[in-house]
Design a binder for these strands. Structure first.
Lengths: 271, 271
DNA sequence: CGCGAGATTGACTCGGGTCAATAGTAGTGG
DNA sequence: CCACTACTATTGACCCGAGTCAATCTCGCG
């Protein structure tokens, strides 16, 4: 339902093969190539000396907002690394509803869920213009054999993703709406900081609906919670612009400090 | 708080090294060894011809109910495969609360979350007597290099775990309490069937509290929901004994059929 | 300018959490 | 064998957090 008109989509699989297809100017932007060294730096993997000399080149592909990098059920043969831009990964349940699983950004690897069953279990949609590095899985495994540290790193990255999902499960299972939104903001802030942007002021790249889906909440609850944080002075919100005012409180917040609603009740009680 | 008295625990790491330690009769039960072929069959991995001849042996260790196989923060060097018995894996959040992440049983691999950071992110506790196969990760990786299908299979298993967690997130984010409990029962039923036991009648190995933690519900809600299913005739429950009466309805259940509460509302509406 | 997608806010409802009482079950030791 | 203790499970009463429905507002964009 979302993004219907924009989705010519899925241009990646059409050109996985040769280098020539890009040099001939696909989408007038696919001009970048990265070597193994670049890839490892993006993924924050310690580079072994042998890797610096490897001359295999990884192809980049550009996507515009709304385009899909891969879709559910599509045959798997690639992993993807975000070089720039913002995306969401989405799982479609049996009744057709979207569930947002994550918001990959610079340095993040996605597509891992395609390894099992050789087809992607989720779909990845660009939320902004994106520059994505294609990583042919077969080739990646072969490189792993040549460079032991790389193989270890691949396992490590997959393990990290698993831990991330476990933490997500834990959050959904036990935290209140306010705590979830607070953590979401802190997590975004940290990731922006790590990318070299400001962690205090940033723009959300996703809608309230997408945030809600990600956090297991409705868009109204997300909106209300952000407004509440705004009133309390934890943040300043204006549409998609966020400014963190009290990071410490956000990090430790478990439930909202006694709001007006509770104050009202208590006033009645003491009267 | 749970299992305090029973936890001499963690005997595995004391004997990871030599074969002699077991043959000398540790805990008077660690007498079994498996080869690569056995391990692959347990994990349902197609065995290549080369693997049949590999003579490396994997050590088994027994755990009694309540013992921990590994704990949070413990240095990682092993993966574990369940040969028999039932366990739970648990993540401890910063305020000390347990969150149940899964219930490994025969054929399941766990400990994967230890690869990243070289220490386990969760802990695994036996819910019954268990026979566990120790898989030294370093050795496993080396075997992967020798047998290409095995390496692919390791990646595949890790990818499958990731998909499982994603499905879990999706469930917690979108399903009602009844739907979660229904799915839990169906999932258990399927797993018991796959293990060769009855999928229609089985005993729960975990408490209501553990089920609730796993599903993001309280133990009271789990108990009430099981009672409701019992009344509707979907299942028969007696304490931990479960008998599935209407598997089809359980599989498709999204919310409970119009209960007395809703009937009341509708009666008022039509009056 | 009007249109449509997104965001905000209010009013109302209800699913499921909380608290509490009771009962069933298992293991322990006298 | 039974009594004692400690879990575990069931069930009821109550209530609050967050979902639902709906109106309004904002902001780009053609």
């Amino acid at each position: 339902m979302l993004c219907t008109s924009i989705t010519e989509s899925n241009s990646a699989s059409a050109l996985t093969g040769t280098r020539a297809s890009v040099e001939s100017g696909w989408q007038r932007a696919g001009k970048l190539w990265s070597n193994l060294n670049d890839v490892c730096e993006l993924l924050r993997i310690a580079v072994g000396t042998s890797m610096v000399e490897d001359d295999f080149l990884f192809q980049h592909v550009q996507f515009k907002a709304g385009q899909r990098v891969h879709t559910v059920g599509q045959p798997f043969d690639m992993l993807y690394i975000v070089n720039s831009g913002f995306l969401k990964t989405v799982m479609i349940d049996e009744s057709g509803n979207e569930q947002v699983l994550g918001f990959p950004m610079k340095g993040d690897l996605f597509g891992i869920d395609g390894i099992h069953n050789r087809q992607y279990a989720s779909e990845a949609v660009a939320l902004s213009s994106c520059d994505i590095i294609l990583v042919p899985f077969k080739k990646f495994m072969a490189l792993g054999k040549a460079h032991a540290e790389l193989e270890t790193a691949i396992y490590s990255v997959m393990s990290r993703e698993l831990i991330r999902e476990q933490a997500m499960v834990s959050m959904l299972g036990s935290l209140s709406a306010e705590a979830r939104v607070a953590r979401f903001l802190v997590s975004l802030s940290d990731r922006f900081s790590a990318m070299g942007y400001s962690g205090r002021e940033f723009n959300l790249r996703m809608t309230r609906h997408e945030i809600g889906s990600y956090l297991g909440l409705t868009l109204e609850t997300v909106s209300r919670t952000l407004s509440a944080f705004n009133e309390i002075g934890l943040i300043a919100v204006d549409q998609r612009a966020i400014s963190i005012k009290d990071a410490a409180s956000l990090k430790t917040l478990r439930r909202l400090p006694p709001s007006r609603a509770r104050a009202k009740r208590e006033a009645v009680g003491t009267a």
